[in-house]
Design a protein around this nucleic acid. Sequence first.
DNA 1: GCCGTTTTCGGCCCGACTGTTTTCAGTCG
Length: 582
Amino acid sequence: MPREALHLDNDAVAHVLDEIADLLELKGENVFRAVTYRAAARSIRDLREPLAELIEQKRLKEIPKVGPSVGEAIEQLVATGRSIRHEELQAAVPTGLLTLLGVPGVGPATARAIYDHLRITTIDELEQAAKDGRLRQLPKIQTKTEENILKSIAALRQRTGRALLNEARAAANTMLAWLRQETGLELLAIAGSLRRFRETIGDVDIVAGSDDAPPIMAAFVRAPTVERILANGDTKSSVLVARGMQIDLRVVPPRSWGAALLYFTGSKEHNVRLRGIALKRKLLLNEYGLYRVGAEARGQELACASEEEIYAALEMDWIPPELREDRGEVDAASRHALPALVAVGDIRGDLHTHTNWTDGRDPLETMALRAKAKGYGYLAVTDHSPGLGMTNGLSLERVQARLAEAAALNAKLAPFRILVGTEVDIRANGKLDYPDDVLARFDIVTASVHSSFSQPRDQMTARIVGAIRHPLVTALSHPTGRLLERREPYDVDLAAVIAAAAETGTRIEINGGPERLDLPDTWIPRAIANGATLVASSDAHAIEELEWMELAVATARRGWATPGAIANTRDLDAMLASRKKA
DNA sequence: GCCGTTTTCGGCCCGACTGTTTTCAGTCG
């Protein structure tokens, strides 16, 4: 069934508002107008209610940065799929300019100049003009700029999108190890979206604290993984490593370490809030420290050595990086009302893992020994059901053998406990992939969708809610089915899924697989508020992937989850007893 | 275009690097 074209959903509206912002910049209007449209787009992406609902209840003005003009555009977009302001701008600005804006290094002014002089509107034309040496005939463009534009286009074509968390972490850790080896530096840390555990990573940010920056910069740009140097300054450099991933390094004096870490961790929106608060107190906050306005030139900082010191000087509690998204954490920290977030150390066991009996790589005993070594009290092994042909799902005979294998290992490893579970497929027709008498033999049953992803919303929702209501199902795995940077989520009414989970006591998984991170962090507060219980799982297919639990916990933290919201922070008996189902 | 414990008008975070410049605009994060 084709999507109803007339009713733009929140993401689609946000997309148009972003485009309006781009067009305003290209048109050369007051930049703050563009800033406002972008800020409004972001607020809308953070909303957990449909815009149509807010319009109906006349609550649009409650959205930050939405006033009369933006509100009118939103109403038009939701009602008709179009906005007069947007269409006027499209008529006034050649649409090709938006394409040029997508090339890194080309901003509104350059895009405008290129179009005005050469009438270029596509990347291909831009590339050809650069190769022909026509760009350098424009004012303020010489060969260097031309070369950079060509390099940017090449990188753009090579680039596959944002990096997954584990890929970005690997690239960052390799660079950190290199810098430590070459410089012996102690003050060295990952900042940016990677430190905040955002689900995908654009650039990797690294901060170093030292009074002697040049040797550090030199080591950075000659690192073996570097493929291209984008910028190489006294205190700031940028490089590209494999697959077009960018790494930025900033060196600050050690006394500014805390201010720099805070600044480069972001998010940008969080920083803007902090600076606004600082300004109201006649203070200036930058990457070097917190100063009384006017005193920064004299180097008389109030605070800057640690993040804690800076937050304290602004009369706030220290805010965990995962919360720094300007989603209420600044106010909560000012009221000293931040939640005590769940931490990796709170996790007592993993409830979703696979072995080499289906699509995993390691045997059960190896997985169990690693889980035990990690300090867990229990490990649920949840190999697939047979319906998923490609994963060699367990037949009834093999389920029997698995139970025997686990019993023998449990005798050996006690008090550590292996729970024999299954990741049972929810078939296209909503039926589970094992009969009830087989499901009843498992300690844990987690249900998931692995096929027929394109079912209509109503059908998909009924299919999943049906599984949640099944009395033998203890959890729902990766509720949206998305694969980051690879596959969109299936169309499902998550609010209905959460409501059914809360009602029945079936748990909702936060899957730590770096491609999934599903339930997404933005839905976690809603699940908690509605009384659903969550579990954090690694979905490990090998022993080293048990470490993906950290990503599941980070996602939970980004969703403001406390230990109480996560079932597997409890020891085995309490975890099993907290299940509402028999 | 939005917003208000300085303000209903006049601000809106702040600084580094690059390239093309004799002092700065453009871009980025």
